[in-house]
């Protein structure tokens, strides 16, 4: 027996959902959603669970991850209850729920906490640089080491345990019976969604946004690969150098368009931006710009006289790797892919 918990609604407001209480349960949102199906009908069911404060069922639900926020539901909602933004807020809430450290929730709910964390990381970078007496060679070498350690550390300590928790909440706790073979057979689904976000194409008129997002993901992963494993900043290979330029430019162009969309608010999906959305998209943009500029300065041989640029790049990188990746919006990349995988597991 679950009990009504009105406090949950107040909690959810801190994650961005403010209007869902006006829902009168007509089901228009579900009926206009192009991703909703007879088996997985949403978003109204999630609005209802949020209204009654049924945390357990929400934590067990994969539906928030099955929504790719085209915004049709919000546009057509008779009560302007904004179900699209509710789904977005539930995703934020779930990311916080999956996070064993509890830091995600703290950062989502408090802009001040996020800013303090970002500033502390930036100070750390500067202090480290001062400690190394601003020796460019040492700093750049350490920066490269940091990238590798951060990736390994964040995955081992934060992300893998969190995905295990997601698995526990959505598969184990609700008592879903999944055979071992099913886990193996469904892996393809996981990889397809991780690298293509294919499902987003099911949204109405979403081809452009899907394509932008797709090349952003590919660009981001390539930049990561180029800087971390091909050592872009230290590389002599013309191929690596050009590749780095191209992907960082791609990241800049796409994220610039995303930022512009959030400023203009001309689409349902970009109308309601929470601080976590801004940080994610702006830091991604900064990563693209600063990486591009650092390599450019190296090629022009002026980095030695402009150490601040590399320090700025390193600060952005550290904030990204220590805050946004483990505790911010970045994790949607993993959770969405795993949600598609877990959803596939339970299809009979």
């Amino acid at each position: 027996m679950s009990r009504i918990n009105p406090k949950f609604g107040k909690e959810l407001k801190k994650y961005g959902a403010t209007e869902f209480g006006s829902c009168y349960n007509c089901g228009t949102c579900t009926a206009v959603c192009s991703l909703s199906t007879g088996e997985d009908s949403f978003p109204r069911s999630m609005v209802r669970l949020s209204e009654t404060g049924n945390e357990e069922e929400i934590a067990a639900s994969l539906k928030p991850w099955l929504c790719y926020y085209c915004g049709e539901c919000s546009t057509n909602c008779p009560q302007t209850a904004n179900p699209g933004e509710l789904m977005m807020s539930l995703r934020r809430w779930l990311m916080a729920k999956y996070d064993w450290t509890g830091l995600s929730g703290y950062l989502y709910k408090s802009l001040t906490a996020t800013i303090i964390a970002m500033v502390l990381v930036a100070i750390g970078v500067v202090v480290f640089a001062a400690y190394e007496k601003f020796d460019m060679e040492v700093i750049m070498h350490s920066g490269h080491m940091f990238e590798m350690l951060a990736i390994a550390g964040v995955f081992a300590v934060i992300l893998i345990p969190n995905i295990a928790r997601m698995w526990y909440f959505t598969i184990i706790k609700p008592g879903k019976n999944v055979s071992f073979m099913k886990y193996i057979k469904s892996l393809g689904e996981f990889l397809i969604h991780m690298f293509t976000q294919k499902r987003a194409l099911g949204c109405d008129d979403n081809q452009k946004r899907w394509f932008e997002h797709f090349i952003l993901v590919i660009g981001y992963l390539t930049l990561l690969f180029t800087t971390v494993f091909l050592d872009w900043f230290g590389s002599e290979s013309i191929f690596v150098i050009v590749l780095g330029y191209v992907v960082s430019a791609v990241i800049f162009v796409v994220t610039f368009d995303f930022v512009l969309g959030r400023v203009k608010k001309n689409k349902e999906v970009s109308k309601h931006s929470q601080p976590s959305d801004w940080f994610f998209v702006i830091w991604l943009l900064l990563m693209g710009v600063t990486a591009f500029a650092v390599r450019l300065f190296i090629d022009l041989d002026i980095l030695e006289n402009n150490k601040w640029l590399y320090l700025f790049h390193l600060a952005v990188l550290a904030q990204w790797a220590l805050i946004i990746v483990p505790f911010g919006k970045w994790t949607h990349f993993l959770y969405r892919s795993f949600a598609m995988y877990f959803a596939k597991l339970t299809v009979v």
Binding site: T28, T30, A31
Partner: peptide
Amino acid sequence: GKIGRISEKENGNLTLRYEDLASGKLK
């Protein structure tokens, strides 16, 4: 359940998309 979408079929019949509130399922 409020009708969300009405689409026309070739023979002029209509398909109505809605959430059946009794079962909570899209139909």
